[in-house]
Computed example of a mutant assay.
Amino acid sequence: MSVSSFEREIILELFKCQNWFDLYSMHERLRLSPAQVAYTVSKLSANGSIEVDGTKARLTEQGRLWVLKNRRALFLDVKRPWADSKFVSEQGFEAGQPYLPRLKSIDRTYFRKN
C-alpha cells in the first residue's frame, strides 16, 4: 500500500471526524492544494472508503474498518526515500561518542588573529 504524505494527512483528518468534514477547511488547515484534496477524495471514493456530498466528505463504515486494519502501514511507515542522498555518506556514531567535524572542511583562517 503506497500512500503519500498528503493522503495520509487527509485520511487522518477524516478518521478523527465522526461526521461530515468540510473539504475546504481541510485545504485551509492542512495547507494542501485543491488538486491534492480532490485527488485523494476521488481515490478514496472510488474504492468506497468515503462518501462525498458537495464539499463535505466522511468515512464510511467500510472506510473506518480499512483505516483501522491498515493503520500500521498508513501511519507508521518509516520509509523516507526523500531523506536518502547519493551525495552524502553518513557514518553512524555510537551513543555517547563525541562529534568531531572533518578537519579538512574547517576554515582555518577564521581562527587566525589579524
Score class of each variant (00 low, 15 high):
residue 71 R to V: 11
residue 28 E to I: 15
residue 110 Y to T: 03
residue 74 L to W: 08
residue 8 R to M: 09
residue 17 C to S: 13
residue 41 V to Q: 00
residue 24 Y to I: 15
residue 102 R to L: 04
residue 95 A to N: 09
residue 17 C to D: 13
residue 80 R to K: 07
residue 43 K to C: 02
residue 32 L to R: 02
residue 23 L to H: 01
residue 101 P to T: 05
residue 28 E to Y: 11
residue 87 F to I: 10
residue 108 R to H: 09
residue 104 K to F: 06
residue 21 F to W: 12
residue 103 L to G: 04
residue 111 F to L: 07
residue 56 K to D: 08
residue 24 Y to F: 14
residue 105 S to Q: 08
residue 51 E to R: 15
residue 81 P to D: 14
residue 70 N to I: 09
residue 60 T to W: 01
residue 52 V to A: 09
residue 81 P to W: 00
residue 20 W to V: 04
residue 18 Q to P: 10
residue 99 Y to A: 03
residue 63 G to E: 00
residue 89 S to F: 13
residue 61 E to M: 09
residue 64 R to P: 02
residue 15 F to R: 05
residue 90 E to K: 15
residue 9 E to I: 07
residue 73 A to E: 11
residue 32 L to Y: 03
residue 67 V to T: 10
residue 96 G to L: 03
residue 31 R to Q: 13
residue 96 G to H: 04
residue 29 R to D: 05
residue 35 A to M: 09
residue 2 S to Y: 15
residue 53 D to E: 15
residue 89 S to Y: 13
residue 43 K to Y: 06
residue 67 V to N: 04
residue 69 K to I: 12
residue 40 T to A: 01
residue 22 D to G: 13
residue 93 F to G: 06
residue 38 A to G: 10
residue 75 F to S: 03
residue 50 I to T: 08
residue 32 L to H: 00
residue 82 W to S: 07
residue 73 A to L: 12
residue 67 V to M: 05
residue 17 C to T: 15
residue 62 Q to E: 12
residue 28 E to W: 07
residue 41 V to A: 04
residue 32 L to V: 02
residue 38 A to N: 07
residue 65 L to D: 13
residue 11 I to G: 02
residue 81 P to T: 07
residue 12 L to G: 10
residue 12 L to W: 07
residue 106 I to P: 00
residue 49 S to L: 12
residue 68 L to R: 11
residue 75 F to M: 04
residue 81 P to L: 03
residue 85 S to Y: 10
residue 9 E to A: 12
residue 82 W to V: 07
residue 10 I to C: 06
residue 29 R to T: 10
residue 14 L to H: 08
residue 44 L to H: 01
residue 73 A to V: 06
residue 101 P to K: 01
residue 8 R to I: 05
residue 67 V to I: 14
residue 24 Y to H: 11
residue 98 P to A: 05
residue 94 E to H: 12
residue 54 G to Y: 08
residue 75 F to D: 06
residue 96 G to T: 01
residue 45 S to K: 09
residue 38 A to F: 06
residue 109 T to V: 11
residue 23 L to W: 01
residue 53 D to W: 11
residue 84 D to C: 12
residue 47 N to Y: 14
residue 8 R to P: 02
residue 9 E to Y: 05
residue 90 E to T: 13
residue 47 N to R: 12
residue 78 V to K: 12
residue 79 K to H: 11
residue 85 S to Q: 07
residue 103 L to K: 07
residue 8 R to D: 02
residue 53 D to R: 15
residue 94 E to Y: 15
residue 78 V to T: 13
residue 68 L to M: 14
residue 71 R to G: 10
residue 102 R to K: 14
residue 18 Q to S: 14
residue 62 Q to N: 13
residue 52 V to I: 13
residue 36 Q to V: 03
residue 84 D to Q: 14
residue 90 E to W: 10
residue 58 R to H: 08
residue 48 G to V: 02
residue 97 Q to K: 12
residue 74 L to M: 04
residue 79 K to E: 15
residue 90 E to C: 06
residue 56 K to Y: 09
residue 110 Y to I: 00
residue 97 Q to V: 08
residue 37 V to D: 01
residue 58 R to S: 05
residue 55 T to S: 14
